[in-house]
């Protein structure tokens, strides 16, 4: 069975098809989970599972889907992504409040890139790379990349994360940012060059 495309699903969902709604909400889960994990404050991550944030965001999206379908002012994925980011912000805020012992300053979102991602990456490298020296190089590179990402401007960081971590296609990024494909590619390349510069001269 081939997956129906998003437009078809949106049309069906708008007509009240509950399965189409479920489909829509489920289809980008993995991309979004990547994004959440990466943005999740490492200091919260011991308690918060990316699944939980995703779940909360999806619940919220489910509630707002009807309104969205009425107007569909932006494309579906960007809409969904925006909700996930709101959920992330909420999670950060609520966490700090719920804890009642706020030792952290509330940060401007998007926050730093999660530490655990880098740790995970190191683990992954062991299995995927063969040479020990390569492994070390990459581990080092990743560590630097993670730090480098935090010094990039938010807009540069965003586009690099979208392309490389959320693994959106360039075309999807054009939808999120409302720019042309050529512009997107060139912005990605420039951001990566900046990152490489930071990583290389750190």
């Amino acid at each position: 069975m081939t997956e129906p495309d998003t437009d078809q699903l949106l049309t069906l969902a708008h007509a009240g098809d509950s399965m189409a709604r479920q489909h829509l909400l489920m289809r980008h889960q993995e991309q979004l989970r990547h994004m959440i994990t990466l943005y999740l404050d490492p200091r919260l991550s011991a308690r918060i599972d990316s699944s939980d944030v995703l779940q909360e965001a999806m619940a919220c999206a489910a509630g707002r889907l009807s309104d969205y379908l009425e107007t569909r002012q932006i494309a579906f994925y960007p809409w969904l992504r925006a909700i996930v980011r709101e959920a992330l912000i909420d999670t950060h805020r609520r966490h700090v409040r719920a804890q009642r012992r706020s030792v952290y300053k509330e940060e401007q979102f998007p926050g730093p890139v999660s530490d655990t991602s880098a740790m995970h990456l190191a683990n992954q490298l062991i299995s995927s790379q063969t040479s020990a020296s390569q492994r070390l190089d990459l581990q080092e590179a990743m560590h630097r990349v993670k730090q480098g990402l935090e010094t990039l401007s938010p807009s540069d960081r965003d586009i690099v994360l979208m392309r490389c971590v959320e693994q959106l296609s360039t075309k999807e990024i054009t939808e999120v940012l409302g720019i042309t494909e050529t512009a997107a590619k060139s912005r990605i390349r420039r951001a990566l060059q900046k990152l490489a510069h930071i990583v290389g001269t750190d």
Partner: peptide, 24 residues
């Protein structure tokens, strides 16, 4: 040249993946 410059970063960032280990 540019490619060689960029490649380690490219590889590293594309390898970043989210999977959180919430070990207590």
């Amino acid at each position: 040249d540019q490619l060689r410059n960029l490649f380690p970063t490219l590889l590293a960032i594309n390898s970043l993946e989210g999977a959180l280990s919430t070990e207590v």
